[in-house]
Amino acid sequence: MADMHRLSPSSWNRYETCPRMYWLSRQGLPRKAGMAASLGTVIHASIEDVLNMDISNRPKASMGWLPGVGEGFLRDRWNEEKDVFHATPRHGRWKDDRWKDAMDGHRGGIDLLLRWVGVEGLPHDRITAALWTRVQERMIAVEGELISRDGRLGGRVDLLLNDVDDAGQTVAWVVADLKTGRAPEGALKPEVDRQLRFYRDVLLANNPEAPNVRAEGWYTLNRTTWRASNDGVLEDAYAAWEATRPTEEPLDPTPGPDSCGGFCDWKAWCGHWLRWRQTSGRLDEGDFRDAVVRVVRRPAGSSTVEVERLLPGEGLDEVVDGGGRCSMLFVGSALPKLEALMDEDAAAPIFIGSALAKGHQWRVGDWCDVLPWTPHAT
């Protein structure tokens, strides 16, 4: 069961954006860590900690303890995630100045939990042990894995809460997913709405005798909650599970602005994005650009490099000169990455991801990918 194929909301989104992107994400290629995702992990884990802590020995009326305890949990999780970040094969610079964002996200989560039990605007140093116990008692589950009975669908659920009436009787279960990014403007994004419905519907399928179940996104940034729509999603989820069965051969890509023109961690292993950007006239679009290059000249000891930008060749794994020459400045961790690749093969094509291309010289820094260009041939 542990090795069986399982579809999660994130893998479904990836497949829908581009099947080739999904396939590459399953090939054991070097993972990439990002500060935004790490920040979300820190906030989620610290909220989990304050919900799971044992406060049975605290006097019920005691106040002033939660901010310090919560910050301690947050700091521990921050340091833990920082180590994970630096141990990830592809990572940029850990941004210590985001600590204030972690604190705000943690406090936002606490505010949302207080609202859940009917308390608004209470300073956190005024939260009593009795009040926090009330919050904890309304939790059915905290940070758990939700898997369909057949094992085919699954994901991690942040909170499962008990919604009660004035008499304390259960009227609904609420699946709440903590969101640490930008809050919606007018409506949930379709992929977020589907994620929430996915959790709700798997939970209902596993628990046919459950009360009414609804799913909500809880946004810590502005302390808002957004309810998912009512349409069921399981039929589509099982169709996606079937379509994403593991294959040795790469799945076909869907070139377009959301895949080849957007965010993808696997461009160094795919030739389709380069061909699509050339044919669509988007090689030079935006301030942050991806490119495949060959080093033409690098003065000894210099961090400035002259490169030839390469264009697609006949095969998807082939590139040719013709994109023009430009100067690139390699700073931070990008420079030793370049040097390591040049030591291995100074003439080999190199993938540069998200270089800052404003002005006459491209800037390649900690935030960039500097990787061998090794695309699949199909």
Score class of each variant (00 low, 15 high):
E248W: 09
E248K: 15
E249I: 15
E249D: 15
E249M: 15
P250R: 06
P250V: 09
P250A: 11
P250G: 10
P250M: 12
L251V: 07
L251W: 06
D252S: 15
D252R: 14
D252H: 12
D252T: 14
D252M: 15
P253D: 05
P253T: 08
T254F: 09
T254R: 11
T254W: 04
T254L: 12
T254E: 11
P255T: 06
P255H: 07
P255W: 02
G256W: 03
G256I: 03
G256M: 07
P257C: 09
P257M: 07
P257Y: 08
P257E: 12
D258G: 04
D258K: 09
D258Y: 07
S259F: 02
S259A: 15
S259K: 04
C260G: 10
C260F: 02
C260P: 01
G261V: 03
G261S: 06
G261L: 04
G261H: 02
G262D: 07
G262I: 11
G262S: 13
G262C: 13
G262V: 07
F263Q: 11
F263T: 12
F263M: 14
C264Y: 00
C264E: 01
C264M: 12
D265G: 02
D265N: 13
W266Q: 03
W266F: 14
K267N: 07
A268I: 09
A268Y: 01
A268K: 00
W269F: 12
W269E: 01
W269A: 01
C270M: 11
C270G: 07
G271N: 09
G271F: 00
G271T: 03
G271P: 03
H272C: 08
H272R: 07
L274H: 00
R275D: 04
R275I: 06
R275S: 05
R275K: 14
W276R: 04
R277S: 04
Q278T: 11
Q278S: 06
T279E: 15
T279L: 13
T279A: 11
T279P: 00
S280R: 06
R282T: 07
L283G: 01
D284K: 10
D284E: 14
E285S: 13
E285Y: 13
E285C: 08
E285Q: 13
G286I: 05
D287W: 10
D287K: 11
D287I: 13
D287P: 00
D287N: 14
F288Y: 13
F288W: 06
R289A: 07
R289E: 06
R289Y: 08
D290N: 14
D290C: 09
D290T: 10
A291Q: 00
A291P: 00
A291C: 10
A291G: 07
